[in-house]
Amino acid sequence: MAVRKAKKQLRVCRECHRVVDGEACVICGTSNLSEDWAGYLVIIDPEHSEIAKKMKITMAGRYALKVR
């Protein structure tokens, strides 16, 4: 059986709930990140999305619904 590489645990900014790739949130500039989060939300076109409006999101990107 092939050994599968463990999937990298993505981290989420505690301030803006944005899914972050590096060590700090690009938008907030904080390094207050959390690995414990649930629910995933992808906003592609915030101007035409009712969901984005509901969540008060103005920037496209990947977000977590719940961050601990």
């Binding site: 939300l41 992808v42 592609i44 969901i51």
Partner: peptide, 17 residues
Amino acid sequence: VVAVIVPEELKGYVLVE
């Protein structure tokens, strides 16, 4: 597609706006 939701409670589905 303007947005995609992946609710934790809803296994095996994604919601697409």
